[in-house]
Simulated assay, not measured.
Amino acid sequence: MNVRQPALALTALIAALSLAACSSSSSGSARADAGGSGATVTVRIPDGGNSGVLALGRKDGSLAKALAKVHAKVAWTGTAGAFAPAAQELDANALDFAEGSITSAIAALAQTPGFKLFSAVDPDELGEGILVKKDSGINSVSDLVGKKVAVWHGGTSEYLLLKALQQNHIPADKVKRVYLQPNQVGPVFNSGQVDAWSTWATYSVPALANSGARFLTTGGQVGSDNYAVWAVRNGFATQHPEVVKALYAYLHDAGLKQQQNPAAYLNVKTSSGPEAVSPAQRAVELPIDKALGTAQPIGATQLAHFATVAQFFAAQKITKGVFDVKPYVIDIDTTTASAK
C-alpha cells in the first residue's frame, strides 16, 4: 500500500490492536461456552446500536429465538464500525462475526486471512459516495484535482475515490488522499481542512442531513462493486456451521422485512440522545434503506464482482497482486436453517 500520514496510520493500528486485546480479555467465558459437547454456543457479535436488523433483533428477541434453535446465544461486544479493527478481532479470537465491505475484507484478507465470508448484500448505490460542501464550488470529479479528500485506508472510501478518478481519467496522484479514521473526519470536513470526504452511509447520512453536505458522486454513479459482506472467524465456522447458517437465515429474513418497512428499523432503542436518528437524518436514510438488498449466499455473480474489486485494488497498488477471494467464501445451504 502507499503510505501516507504514517503517524495517523500507526495510531489507527494501535487503537485497533488495543481494542482486540480488550475484547480478548473479556471473551474467555464465550469461548468456554462454545467448548463442551451439547453446551450452548456463545456468539460474539458487535452491538448493532440503535438502528438496523441487529438492533431490532436484539430488542424484540427475534435474533435470540433464531439462534436458540441451534443452541446458541449472543454476547454483544463493542460497537459496529469500520471493518479493519473487527477483522483483527476475528483473527485474535476476540469476535465471531462482523459485517463490512468487500473492499475492506479484501484488504484485510490479503494481510491476515483469519475469517471467511458467508453472505453478501448488493452494493449501496445511494448511501456511499464522495461528499463536498454545498457551497464548495466543487461540481465535478475533475474539480478534485489539487484538492484534499479524506479517506479510510484500503476500504470503501478509498475505493470509491479511486473509482471516481478512474472513471474520469484522472491520475490518482492528482488528488491528495488524507488518511483518517472514519469517526475523525466529521470535524475535519466541517472545518474545511479537507475539501471532500469519501465515505459510506453511517457517516454520509448525518453529514447530508446536518452539515450542509451534498454528494459529488455516489457509489451507483461510479459503478461500485462494493458489496457488504458478513464474515465469520475461521475456527467458529469450522466448529459451528449450523450457527453460521442460522445467523445467515436470520439476516436474510430480517433484511427483507427492513426493505418493506425501513422506518421500523430506525431508533430501535431510543429516539433521543446522541444515538438517535434525527428527523432530518430519517428523511435522508429511509430511501437508502428501502433501496438496499438483503443478505444472500455468495455465488458466481458475487464472486465475479469480488474478483473485479481485487483486480482494481491490485492495479491501484492497494494490495500486492490480485487477491483470490474464492477460497475464503463459505457456501451457505439455506435449506438446513431457518430464522422463522
Rank of each mutant, 00 (worst) to 15 (best):
V141S: 01
F313E: 12
S37T: 09
G52W: 13
A254Q: 12
V41Y: 01
V325E: 04
P297W: 12
A280L: 02
L286K: 00
A213K: 00
K59S: 14
V43S: 02
L256Q: 14
D96P: 01
L256N: 11
E128T: 14
G38K: 06
V149N: 02
L292K: 14
G36S: 12
G146F: 05
L10A: 10
L303P: 06
A108M: 07
A39H: 04
N226S: 11
D225V: 05
Q259W: 04
G114S: 13
L180E: 01
H252C: 05
A228N: 13
A237E: 11
L67V: 11
Y265E: 11
A164T: 02
T103C: 09
T40V: 13
G78L: 02
T238C: 00
A55E: 05
K317E: 12
E275P: 00
S23N: 01
S26Q: 12
N93F: 07
T294E: 10
K320Q: 15
Q221R: 05
L292Q: 13
H305V: 13
Q111W: 06
N210Y: 01
L8F: 08
Q166H: 10
K340F: 14
A15T: 15
A213H: 02
H252K: 14
S62D: 00
F323V: 07
I45W: 08
L180A: 02
H240S: 12
S62Y: 03
N234L: 09
A283W: 00
L63H: 03
A107S: 13
E242K: 15
T217F: 00
Q167W: 00
I106D: 03
H153E: 15
H153G: 12
D124N: 13
P241W: 10
T77S: 00
I170W: 04
L216E: 05
L117M: 13
L144F: 06
T334V: 12
S62V: 03
A30D: 09
A32R: 12
A254P: 00
V194C: 02
L56A: 10
N168M: 02
G100L: 03
V325P: 05
T319Q: 04
N139D: 15
A209G: 04
L160E: 11
F83H: 01
S224K: 05
T336C: 05
G57L: 07
D60Q: 11
A68D: 14
A20N: 01
D96H: 09
N267S: 04
V145S: 06
G81I: 07
Y179C: 11
L162E: 08
T217W: 08
